[in-house]
Design a binder for these strands. Structure first.
Length: 424
RNA sequence: GGAAACGUGUCCGAGUGGUUUAAGGAGCAAGCCUGGAAAGUUUGUAUACGGGAAACCGUAUCGAGAGUUCGAAUCUCUCCGUUUCCGCCA
């Protein structure tokens, strides 16, 4: 959510940036918000004045009553009764306007950075870098959903029996590969200075609201009705909410956290080739990196986080490309997002394995995550997060790209973690 | 699941209708003191919104919401959370 004061102080810039995201009627809506806020302020001023007068009179009433001057007290009490009615009306007016402003404000997306390329859809994303050689596969090469069955390492049908579609069962070397990747990613994050967190994987409503999953994406999360808890769609939710309602010291920044969790997504409305095999799951594993940083540093840190995830792909010897998302393809809350995609050789397509974003103050405004500047004033920090990395599509690419007639050869970096070189 | 207690500022903690404009203590910061420190001492030390060029001022906030009252941290109701004991249990 954008800050009202920021919108007021930087109206023209906000409109210009919103246009980059193809947000319709930006100018009309921003003007409307400011106009409504002016009305709210006027109502507050009047209400505050009423209350101030009433407070002063109430003090007199107490004094008069104690002095036994009941008549005078009664006169004052008549006036305070009047003030009370006025104040109540003004307060209601103010609350009403505030509610309306809030309702509009939550529909306004974050302002994209000026670095964001213009564009409407995924086709307009800018390819920043493409690296690694796409492997030439032998004639009998197969997509990963056939390989997993051939080597009996991931069982989709068994998952359907136990739970439903999109909940695969990892078996034998498939299970060990999962564990290896999680440990590999975590070790790399820790080596890069991140602090490991093992959070709960169910969260309450406040947390869902804090990072912006609620109210927008209510239907995308699994919900435990009995206890009013949500299964997390990403570790970002609990790991970032640690800093909800927290005022940090400036020298504590940057905060660098990482965490492994399973992630749960209902993926309502998905279908087709996108959901085949490991391409899209309801439950998957991911290591997430999260930073809370000083506003002046957030774009440098975004690059640093991107490079961390890129380093993982290089270690895994996977061909990849970096996309800078265009205004139309960015998520609601992001100011600048890079996606990382790996080449899936048997499917002949790019698969998204990571998304690294700077949210600027969009999340921290909701979270009320602040730091004290040199004057001791609380200021909103910037928050960033990125996948480092999500497992399933990495596994898909590893299996497909490294298949040989003898079996699947693992990249060197993973061998110490897996304890084997080949899946055969 | 059963029973009870509790929720006040950065923390501890007092406060049962009107000098509470939230006592007192600790912590923290600055000043004094000191060769330097400790001790001592003085002062300061929340957040949000609004008004103001600023100094500063107003309003709200004692878990949340609603109510009673001229006036609520204090009384009433509802909800939320935490802790303890019992039960069950990896």
């Amino acid at each position: 959510m954008l800050q009202l004061n920021y919108i007021r102080d930087n109206k023209d810039e906000v409109i210009k940036r919103l246009n980059l995201k193809n947000f319709k009627d930006a100018e009309t809506i921003i003007n409307q918000i400011i106009e409504m806020d002016n009305n709210r302020r006027a109502a507050q001023k009047q209400a505050d004045d009423c209350k101030a007068e009433a407070n002063a009179l109430n003090r007199q009433t107490g004094d008069l009553k104690r002095a036994g001057k009941v008549d005078e007290a009664e006169k004052i009490m008549a006036r305070t009764s009047e003030l009370k009615v006025m104040e109540r009306e003004l307060n209601e007016k103010q609350k009403q306007i505030e509610k309306e402003v809030q309702a509009i404000l939550v529909t306004v997306p974050n302002t994209p950075s000026f670095k964001v390329p213009a564009g409407k859809s995924a086709e307009d994303n800018e390819v920043v870098l493409e690296e690694g050689k796409k492997p030439e596969l032998y004639a009998g090469a197969r997509p990963h959903w056939e390989l997993t069955a051939q080597y009996n390492i991931i069982d989709f049908e068994l998952g359907v029996k136990l739970t439903g579609a999109g909940f695969p069962v990892y078996k034998g070397k498939g299970a060990r590969l999962q564990r290896a990747l999680i440990n590999f990613f975590l070790d790399k994050a820790i080596a890069a200075g991140y602090y490991e967190i093992q959070p709960p994987i169910v969260v309450n409503e406040d947390s869902g609201y804090g990072t912006g999953q609620l109210p927008d994406k209510e239907g995308q999360m699994y919900y435990i009705n009995e206890d009013k808890l949500y299964l997390i769609p990403t570790a970002e939710v609990p790991v970032t909410n640690i800093y909800r309602d927290v005022i940090l010291k400036e020298e504590e920044l940057p905060i660098k956290n990482c965490g492994y969790t399973p992630c749960f997504r209902r993926e309502a409305g998905s279908y087709g080739k996108d959901v085949r095999g490991l391409n899209r799951l309801h439950q998957f594993d991911k290591v997430e990196i999260v930073q809370i940083v000083h506003p002046s540093k957030s774009y440098d840190i975004l690059e640093e986080m991107l490079q961390h995830s890129v380093g993982l792909l290089r270690d895994l010897e996977l061909p990849f490309r970096i996309l800078k998302l265009c205004g139309g393809d960015m998520s609601f809350g992001s100011a600048l997002t890079y996606d990382l995609e790996v080449w899936s050789a048997a499917q002949q397509r790019w698969l998204e394995v990571s998304s690294v974003s700077n949210f600027e103050t969009f999340q921290t405004n909701r979270l009320k995550c602040r730091y004290r500047d040199e004057k001791g004033k609380p200021q909103l920090a910037h928050s960033l997060n990125g996948s480092a990395l999500a497992l399933p599509r990495i596994v898909a690419a590893l299996l497909e790209n490294n298949q040989t007639e003898q079996g699947i050869k693992l990249p060197k970096a993973l061998v110490p973690y897996c304890g084997f070189e080949m899946i055969n």
